[in-house]
Amino acid sequence: MTVRVITGQGVDACPDGFLALYEHSDYNLPNGGGRILLTDEAIPNLKAHDFNDQVSSVIKKIYNCSITLWTDTNYQGTTFPLQESISEYRTMTDFSKVDVKQNDTISSVQIKKW
């Protein structure tokens, strides 16, 4: 089980078997790079990794699990479930939640392996 924060950009910055949370939309590309949180485990509080309310795009290269992003710590608040068939979320608006602020609102990540 691993959680680490790196600096980088693009889809290829996410290795197989990990979920990548990018601090900027479009996988940090327009900004010339940025921080990326890589994880293969649940994180009840992103503040522990200095990534609370920082997520703007997501890459999912972890399989055989369900993944839900939450707006509050300890898996509370509004949910943003990642679909099994979708691996790239270029912006947080890709979740299409009407009337919900989506960018820079994620505080916990739940990963349930099958």
Results as ranks from 00 to 15, higher is better:
residue 61 K to Q: 13
residue 79 T to S: 13
residue 106 I to N: 07
residue 46 L to F: 11
residue 82 L to T: 09
residue 90 R to P: 00
residue 92 M to E: 11
residue 84 E to W: 06
residue 56 S to C: 05
residue 95 F to G: 05
residue 79 T to W: 03
residue 83 Q to Y: 02
residue 52 N to G: 09
residue 51 F to Q: 04
residue 58 V to R: 13
residue 57 S to N: 08
residue 102 Q to L: 02
residue 57 S to K: 07
residue 89 Y to A: 10
residue 71 T to S: 14
residue 84 E to C: 09
residue 66 S to T: 15
residue 51 F to R: 04
residue 88 E to H: 08
residue 95 F to A: 03
residue 101 K to M: 06
residue 98 V to E: 13
residue 47 K to P: 00
residue 46 L to W: 10
residue 92 M to W: 08
residue 80 F to T: 00
residue 75 Y to C: 06
residue 92 M to Q: 12
residue 44 P to L: 04
residue 70 W to C: 08
residue 59 I to V: 15
residue 108 S to M: 13
residue 83 Q to D: 10
residue 52 N to W: 03
residue 68 T to G: 08
residue 79 T to D: 05
residue 104 D to E: 14
residue 103 N to Y: 02
residue 86 I to V: 15
residue 55 V to I: 15
residue 82 L to Q: 11
residue 63 Y to S: 13
residue 109 V to A: 12
residue 62 I to P: 03
residue 75 Y to V: 09
residue 80 F to Q: 00
residue 53 D to R: 02
residue 87 S to E: 12
residue 45 N to G: 12
residue 82 L to D: 11
residue 48 A to V: 02
residue 95 F to V: 03
residue 97 K to W: 00
residue 45 N to I: 04
residue 109 V to E: 11
residue 52 N to H: 12
residue 68 T to R: 08
residue 51 F to N: 04
residue 93 T to E: 13
residue 73 T to P: 04
residue 99 D to P: 00
residue 111 I to D: 08
residue 71 T to N: 06
residue 73 T to L: 07
residue 110 Q to L: 15
residue 61 K to A: 10
residue 107 S to P: 01
residue 69 L to R: 03
residue 60 K to A: 01
residue 77 G to W: 07
residue 57 S to V: 08
residue 102 Q to P: 00
residue 99 D to V: 00
residue 59 I to E: 12
residue 63 Y to A: 11
residue 106 I to G: 06
residue 68 T to K: 12
residue 90 R to T: 01
residue 55 V to Y: 15
residue 48 A to W: 02
